[in-house]
Design a protein around this nucleic acid. Structure first.
Lengths: 185, 185
DNA sequence: TACAAAATTTTCGTATAAGAAAAATTTTCG
DNA sequence: CGAAAATTTTTCTTATACGAAAATTTTGTA
């Protein structure tokens, strides 16, 4: 359904057919016909239209651009997050009441004491960041030798690379863990 | 340049023209002509092609799908980040050596002591997360009354909403600040 | 090499996209 | 309201997209 999409986008930009014609290089008559569903534009015209409208071509094919909700905010007090526990980690998902975030912050306690506790290293889409709040953390990952991080140290890495964290010191380490969402919508 | 793009995508899927024709509903002869640049397909054919190939239409228009670099990692020791300072904040960009991250972590010292120090509130695309490391922070923003956060508290919000942080207690507060990138590439 | 099968390109008739200009419609403003 | 201007739609001609089938090229196998 290109016709209504184009109508909507042109209206949103407050352009006349004449103006859009100038910006895109597509003739006024052709634009009119497209908007009335009387004509199916070719590749060049579609590319020109997207360019003239300043949108991604995907938008003309009904793909939503970015579902950015506006003005959301969420507060979590210390220790007030939703706890989720595995053998290796104790996650406290802060600001969990906000769905669809672009990245996910987790206050995490690292229970694991040895790499043996991990079967296979974790691997998934996205990127991660770790900031050490307390204690000592050793990061094991593909391609790198184990890395020890102390309070205030941080590490950013690609999640597709196998990874695992273990506590190094006397007591369980605590880190602020941030994960990006997977790439595809 | 649709022709080489289509050739590449079809080769990647190991499909013959016949097979792609069956999957997409576009005739073999038309496919051949498109791949040889002898013909500019219409809207319907383009949509059908993307569907048959299992790719986003944007790919047919030369947009890269997802440039996910694999296996990157960066380490920053406490206090070892790149410092950037404004009147209100002192940013320490950790893991700054890694370009193109999906979100940006900043260890930030909040120097501002009053909302008057901010002219206009900050407003930009994206989302942000603040985790208080030390001290007390008051978050001012559109739509909400000022919010005071103590050590261990966190807040996640939409960056398009005007926002500003000031230190509340005796000494400058320190927070771990995470910003998502702007939506469009 | 020969030969058949598969894959691709070309041919050709029909349908339709493209744009210029005319016609119709809507908007603006006295 | 009514005329002029702006905007959109229609008309008409040319160029080109589309698919079926034929022609050609490539691939696989003996």
């Amino acid at each position: 359904m290109l016709a209504p999409t184009l109508k909507r986008l042109r209206a949103a930009s407050r352009l006349t057919l004449q103006q859009l014609s100038e910006r895109s290089g597509v003739s006024v008559s052709t634009l009119s016909k497209i908007e009335n569903g009387q004509l199916s534009p070719t590749y060049e015209k579609i590319a020109a239209l997207a360019s003239g409208l300043g949108v991604e071509v995907g938008e003309l094919f009904g793909q939503v651009p970015k579902p950015t909700p506006l003005g959301r905010r969420s507060v979590t007090r210390a220790g007030g997050g939703a706890v989720h526990e595995t053998d290796q980690y104790r996650y406290e998902a802060v600001n969990a009441d906000l769905p669809g975030k672009r990245f996910v912050p987790l206050v995490t306690t690292i229970k694991a004491r040895s790499i043996q506790q991990f079967g296979e290293l974790s691997r998934h889409d996205g990127e991660e960041f770790i900031y050490v709040l307390d204690g000592e953390v050793t990061v094991h990952s593909d391609y790198y030798t184990p890395l020890t991080l102390s309070k205030g140290d941080s590490c950013y890495f690609d999640s597709a690379m196998g990874h695992a964290c273990i506590s190094g010191g006397e007591e369980d380490a605590r880190v602020l863990w941030v994960c990006s969402h997977s790439s595809l919508a």
